[in-house]
Design a protein around this nucleic acid. Structure first.
Lengths: 217, 217
DNA sequence: CTGCATCCCCTCAGATACTG
DNA sequence: CAGTATCTGAGGGGATGCAG
């Protein structure tokens, strides 16, 4: 299998050789949330041709970024997961995601908003400095989307779906009719008080402090 | 001009829409070092077809990443430079560069090593914590490549060519016959003492502390 | 000499259909 | 569920042409 490459001895060029092909980093994005099956990835990447997904998975596997596992008895089937090398891509995803977010205006009609994107966005907004020593758990509801964040003495974990265990604060955004259920929309709603809370109110401020980027001066 | 896009309301997807096309980030890489002319870019990106370079520059311009300037009297001609938005991509380049470097083995025959790659690599290795309060200037020679780094009370600047002003320390790597003149090769040489110095020896240790990533335990 | 535009070829993305 | 097979067309790779 001849892979075309940039032919430069350069970290950036090598990175692009490995994960620069179309769709590759979006596949990695979905896998950072949790391991997925083939059809999960298809569903999370609207518009990806099945042959491209198939090809990318093979390439990423060969690159040592993705691991193909045959799941054991209970559910059985094929599951794709990130290798440690693939997990090391998270800073890249966050850097790209932050930059892209700053270039992201209002959603255009037809834009899909996936739960994975929302969780990535929350992670990209995470402020480790503000989180130092903080413990707590939050559950986020925006439209159909449910996600959670758990802080254990500053250690951050997040994912799609209801929080594992009982969350300290459940937050449900009250969206306008036209609002798309994104992490952005949630934060916007939360900041303007358009959010229903189940739990202590102070934890909302904590959340906003730890999980949003402060406005530049 | 209809640009295909991922159709996701997601920072990462948007970033890839804007700078995810082939060659785009390598063009940005070269422009982070300094503004360039069309032919400079061609020379720095061996293998890029001229029509692709032309197309990318237009796309990047439209994306607000690159600015096309018509240089005034002295040299006259067209110069491409990064806009502030484009400069904000530096964390992305560094993150990708770091990851890619970790996946970068020995240079393969035919691999080109460009000065831009070397400077990006030095920047990616920069340790702000170690640099706090440090002032000094270094000039690096590896094969034909000359680059410099200047620290002014922790503020970091770097580029291709001889240092502006008289450098505190000039370092020239003694390469083996097979060694490719990369930043990596320089660091390797410097760490093993295979480097000729003009200036105080302690500054070499300072350099290695500030401009290399410490080995993980 | 710089700064592209044009042409041709061919790979690869995109879409759909189909199979173990 | 997890892909493979097949077709089409856009766009990358490479060479060349040409105006300012």
């Amino acid at each position: 299998m001849k892979r075309r490459d940039y032919g430069q001895y350069c970290g950036l060029a090598r990175a692009l050789d490995l994960v620069g092909e179309r769709w590759a980093l979006l596949i990695v994005r979905d896998l950072t949330i949790r391991p997925r099956r083939y059809t999960d990835l298809q569903a999370g990447l609207p518009g990806i041709p099945t042959n491209v997904l198939s090809t990318r998975l093979k390439e990423l596997e060969q690159a040592g970024v993705v691991e193909r596992r045959v799941a054991p008895a209970p559910q059985r089937g094929v599951v794709y997961a990130l290798t440690p090398v693939g997990q090391d891509l998270e800073p890249v995803l966050l850097a790209l995601g932050r930059w892209g977010s700053s270039q992201l205006g209002d959603p255009r009609p037809g834009d899909v908003i996936s739960p994975d994107a929302a969780v990535l966005n929350m992670r990209a907004n995470f402020q480790p400095a503000e989180a130092a020593g903080v413990t707590g758990s939050w559950e986020i509801h925006v439209g159909d989307l449910v996600a959670y964040a758990v802080l254990t003495d500053g250690e951050f974990e997040s994912g799609i779906g209801p929080a594992p265990g009982k969350p300290d604060l459940v937050m449900t955004a009250r969206l306008g009719a036209d609002d798309v259920p994104s992490y952005r929309a949630f934060v916007k709603a939360a900041k303007s008080g358009k959010v229903d809370l189940v739990g202590p109110r102070e934890l909302l401020d904590t959340f906003l402090r730890v999980f949003t980027v402060p406005k530049a001066a």
